[in-house]
Design a protein around this nucleic acid. Structure first.
Lengths: 215, 215
DNA sequence: TAGATTGTTAATCGATTAACAATC
DNA sequence: TAGATTGTTAATCGATTAACAATC
C-alpha cells in the first residue's frame, strides 16, 4: 500500500492546475520547474517534489510539457470524471453555486436545488427548479448524486447531513459553520467563510501593530 | 521584535473561538485542554502550545475560564473592532455576503454594494443599495472602508483590486479565482471555491481507489 | 556530445507531540 | 497539603529546501 499524500501537497495541486491552464491558454508548450517557480512564487524544489508524489511527468533537459502535465493533474484531482451535485439551501449562496458555470466545465454538474422555504417554490435557477426538501429521498433514488453541497443555516445542517448520508451520498461540500460528525467513509470538504474573514481581520490587526511598532 | 506566529496556528484560532463560543452558550464555565482536546479532536498539547503563542490564558490545576479565553481569542482575531466592508460584484455571491447577518455580530459591517451591471440599479439588499462601480471613488472618499470583498468575475478582479488599493483600502477578501499581485502592505485573504471543490473530488477519487484495492 | 533539467537523496527547518517541573 | 493541570522544554515527526547524479 502506497503512502498517503499529505494534505499540504493536495492543497497546492489546484493552484498548479490553474497556472498550467493559463499557460496552456497562452499557447506555452513546455515549462521548467524553474520558470514555473518564478511565476508561482514557490520553490522549484517544491514543485518537483509535489509532482513526483504522483509520478514522473517531466523529462530531463526539457522540463514539463504543459498540456500533458495539465491533463495529468486534472486526472489526479478527478476532473476527468463527472460529479452530480445537489445543493441544499437555495438562498443566495446556494443560487450562487448553481449559477457558477465554471464548475460545469470541470465536470461538476448541479443537478438539484432544495430548500425548506415554500416561498422559493416555482423559482428556478439556470433551469434547475427549487424543490422542497421533502422531495429529497425520492429525487436521490431516481438520480445518481455524488455530492451534496450544504448551504443552509447551521441549525439544520447536522440533521440534513445525516439524512443525505443515509440516502447514499458519500461526499459533502459543507458551507455550514459547524463540524459534521459522519461515518469515516464520507468525504467532507468544509468552506468556513467566517473563519476566512477572521483570518483576514487577524492579519489587519497584525499589520497595524507592526506599523505602530515602526513609528 | 517578537517572532511571527505561523499560519498553521492562525488557521486554527477561529475554530477554537467557535468551540469556546458554543461552550459559553452551553453555560460551561471552565474547561481543561484535555476536555477541549476530546471535543475538538486535536491534541491537548497542540491546544496549549497554540494558546501560549499569545500568552498564558489558563491556570494550573484549574484549566481555562471559558468566557475569558473566548474573549481573549476574540481580541487576538481582531473581533473587538469594527470593520466596514464594501462588496464589489452584486451577483448571488455578493448578495449572499451582504445578507449574512452573522458577520455583523462579529463587527463586520457591509457598508456598500457595487456592480457594473446597470440592470442591478435600484436593487437593494438588506437596505444596502447596489451602486454603480463608477461611484466607488466618491463613496470611498466619504466613508471609512476597511475591507473590499471582490466577488466579481476574475477577468476584472485584478484591475478593480488595483483601483481599490489606490483608493486607500488595504485589505481584500478575494473570491475571484486568481492570485492578486498587490503591494506588500495590502492584506489579502483568498477564498477559492473551485480549489475547494477539486480537493473534494480528489478525496472522492482517493476513497474509490482505496475501496477497489480492498476488494 | 554538451547543456539543461529532471527525479531523488540528503540536509535543514519547522511544526507537532511528549514529558515534566512549576504552580494554582 | 495533595491533586490537577498549566506553561514550557525536549524529542519526534514531517515538510521544505538544497544538492547532485541520472538522463534526455
Amino acid at each position: 500500500m502506497e503512502k498517503d499524500i499529505s494534505q499540504a501537497v493536495i492543497r497546492r495541486m489546484p493552484r498548479y492546475y490553474r497556472y498550467l491552464g493559463e499557460l496552456l491558454d497562452a499557447g506555452v508548450e513546455r515549462i521548467s520547474s524553474n520558470e514555473l517557480s518564478a511565476q508561482m512564487k514557490v520553490t522549484a524544489s517544491q514543485i518537483r517534489q509535489d509532482l513526483n508524489n504522483f509520478g514522473g511527468f517531466g523529462q530531463q533537459g526539457y522540463g514539463y510539457n504543459v498540456r500533458f502535465l495539465y491533463e495529468e493533474i486534472g486526472k489526479i484531482l478527478g476532473l476527468d470524471k463527472q460529479y452530480h451535485i445537489i445543493v441544499i439551501g437555495a438562498g443566495n449562496l446556494g443560487q450562487a453555486l448553481a449559477n457558477y458555470v465554471k464548475f460545469e466545465k470541470r465536470g461538476f454538474i448541479i443537478t438539484g436545488l432544495f430548500d425548506v422555504n415554500p416561498a422559493l417554490k416555482g423559482l428556478s435557477v439556470r433551469g434547475i427548479p427549487v424543490r422542497m426538501l421533502e422531495e429529497l429521498p425520492e429525487f436521490v433514488k431516481n438520480n445518481k448524486i455524488d455530492i451534496a453541497a450544504l448551504t443552509m443555516p447551521k441549525e439544520s445542517a447536522s440533521q440534513v447531513a445525516n439524512q443525505v448520508v443515509e440516502l447514499g451520498i458519500n461526499a459533502i461540500w459543507n458551507f455550514a459553520h459547524l463540524d459534521l460528525e459522519l461515518p469515516p467513509h464520507v468525504v467532507v470538504e468544509n468552506v468556513h467563510l467566517s473563519d476566512s474573514l477572521m483570518q483576514l481581520s487577524y492579519n489587519i490587526v497584525k499589520r497595524e501593530q507592526h506599523a505602530k511598532r515602526q513609528s
